[in-house]
Design a binder for these strands. Structure first.
Lengths: 355, 355
DNA sequence: CTGTTAGCGCATTCAC
DNA sequence: GTGAATGCGCTAACAG
């Protein structure tokens, strides 16, 4: 392993001073053509990687990063993404980045549009987007494109946009996996219940559609014939849910397992808990507080984690490194799908990717 | 979020100079009682965390860390631990730590003893131990204890020792989980095969014993009556294995699934592949190259990962932070048990805990 | 015993 | 256009 190459080394090799190398590295102009050529030749030869922690020491520039996601509720999905972002900021404590957080009501398209309009006004250096409403978000990205502000997606990518990168799990495979798991643990011939969120005044999120496709594809690929029964769930009126579930189970007597392709599975686990139901298998998504409780109590059999903290962490880390030294960016980034059970949840560390 | 507190700030608050604070922080002596008290009072109040990347810049001291594990084979278990250690060193590129690596033959107790004797001679600042032979390792730790050289364990802890910390997965739960998984996917009433490594001239590793216990406990707790059939495997003569397997399947006609409580499951997957066997379920441990292949090809149904890279990474990171600024150490550290399937292995990133 | 200071690698700024 | 000088937080060596 060869000794690390520093700016000073490059300067020496190219026969110029350190200041000149720095100007070239940062495209700051005021450099003669001959110097540029000499330095670039050296840069091709050696693999220079600035030490970002130290560069931050002397860096005066402040970066402004805007973050927009649905409102953050404690113990729920989006909190993890924000948490990962915060951790990235801690890792780069020397870099001065100012975060502006704009959250919106994920069930209210007007709220989202309003917030996005504000963002379009700011002079951000970069934007992290957790998208819910397709058209509204596309509109935002168009405005950002025009002003050449880079943006990245967390949670899910969005078609017809040109982000710097996106950080997501493979939602299709997620649904596929859920199908595989539930069918491997329910009695053959029993029915499968599926919780389906009803969104008001907007198309349902793209993530759910992909998961649903993956789920159905697994069943048809494997020639599995258990029927799937919809369980309605009105996200805006959670208090109605108990009644909806009761009705469901009255009409459906052959349910062997239930899957939830959004993060609300804990509601069913809680219902099972209150009603002493322990003969129905349950596969859910996301490590929300209620889901973790349901898993620990034994009502949820498998819980799939999408590593949202990791998505947030990587998004911010990628942006910082890109902003500071134009580190080349990998566009498509898929996080792991964690399969958790009652036995393993105790060892799950949201920040296993850090300290 | 308040501004980060620096040494200079502490010095000012305590009415002394930065040099004095530094001396106190590093227990370097030459400090009056009154100064010490004043500074320690300030330290209690503020939450000082040195910036290790910068401290490394000016740190002249070189740390010598000895690493001892079984020989490292490409694509096998111990390589991951070493890989994690290397990654920690990259993260702390500014700290000058010299690694001395001593590996031994994990099937030869004399080789291990010989290597450990060499280690006992070195003037290491700390030691990372991947233990195989209990008595030999205990002997080493006694010598280290005497010379007050701190040591940490990776892969598994060891009784009757006093390490600074250990980094392991919960092997008991691992076995328990394997039992849960295999019994949930095999036909009821079928038998379970279990690969059992035969070690020459030494007690079998403690990890296997714990896993075995967990496995058996699950079966008895749940009142599961499938019988378990041993498959012998002579680690020193792998070429015999095909024949051993053939004999096994000739005498056993009712095998519904096989579990492997060590990392050699890939051997069975390969055997299945060569012989076109696809009606026997397989649950294995560790992300070795053969195991990953078996999972991708569909011969292994569930693969459990113990995150050895993470163990190595944390071990080195913990040591560095302890050596440099006596960062308080958490003694018991359990890594996650990853449940991987054909669908999720593609997204598994050994270094999901880092960049 | 204690305060002061050089220097680590880097980005920036100010004379030339 | 360019090199030299400065300062970031920290350690270590030195002068008091």
């Amino acid at each position: 392993m060869q000794r690390k190459v520093r700016i000073k080394d490059i300067a020496q090799m190219a026969g110029v001073s350190a200041g000149t190398v720095d100007r070239i590295l940062h495209n700051r102009g005021n450099v003669s053509e001959s110097a540029r050529i000499a330095v670039e030749k050296v840069l091709k030869k050696v693999n220079y990687k600035p030490n970002i922690h130290i560069s931050g020491l002397s860096l005066k520039r402040k970066y402004k990063v805007v973050i927009t996601t649905p409102h953050v509720m404690e113990g729920e999905y989006w909190e993890s993404i924000h948490s990962g972002i915060r951790h990235a900021l801690e890792e780069f404590e020397n870099i001065r980045v100012q975060c502006l957080i704009y959250t919106y009501n994920q069930y209210d398209i007007y709220s989202c549009r309003e917030v996005h309009d504000q963002i379009a006004q700011t002079d951000a250096d970069a934007v992290i987007i957790g998208a819910t409403f397709k058209e509204v978000t596309v509109r935002l990205t168009k405005q950002l494109d025009e002003r050449e502000i880079p943006y990245v997606f967390v949670d899910s990518p969005l078609e017809d946009t040109s982000p710097l990168a996106f950080f997501t799990s493979d939602h299709y495979i997620c649904g596929y996996l859920v199908a595989k798991l539930i069918t491997s643990i329910i009695p053959s011939g029993s029915d499968i219940g599926m919780l389906q969120a009803v969104r008001i005044g907007a198309q349902s999120a793209n993530t759910s559609i992909l998961r649903k496709q993956g789920f159905n594809d697994y069943l048809s690929e494997k020639g599995i014939t258990n029927s799937v029964r919809r369980i309605p769930f009105t996200a805006m009126e959670p208090e109605k849910f108990d009644q909806q579930l009761e009705e469901f189970f009255q009409t459906q007597q052959n349910i062997g397992g239930i899957v939830v392709l959004n993060s609300r599975g804990g509601l069913i686990a809680d219902y099972f808990d209150r009603n002493g139901i322990d003969d129905i298998r349950l596969v859910c998504l996301d490590l929300t507080a209620p889901n973790i409780r349901g898993l620990k109590n034994g009502y949820i059999d498998f819980l799939i984690g999408q590593e949202p903290e990791h998505q947030g962490f990587l998004a911010m880390k990628t942006l910082i490194e890109y902003l500071i030294y134009r580190k080349p960016v990998k566009v498509e980034n898929y996080t792991q799908l964690d399969i958790l059970t009652k036995e393993t949840i105790g060892y799950y560390n949201q920040f296993n990717f850090m300290s």
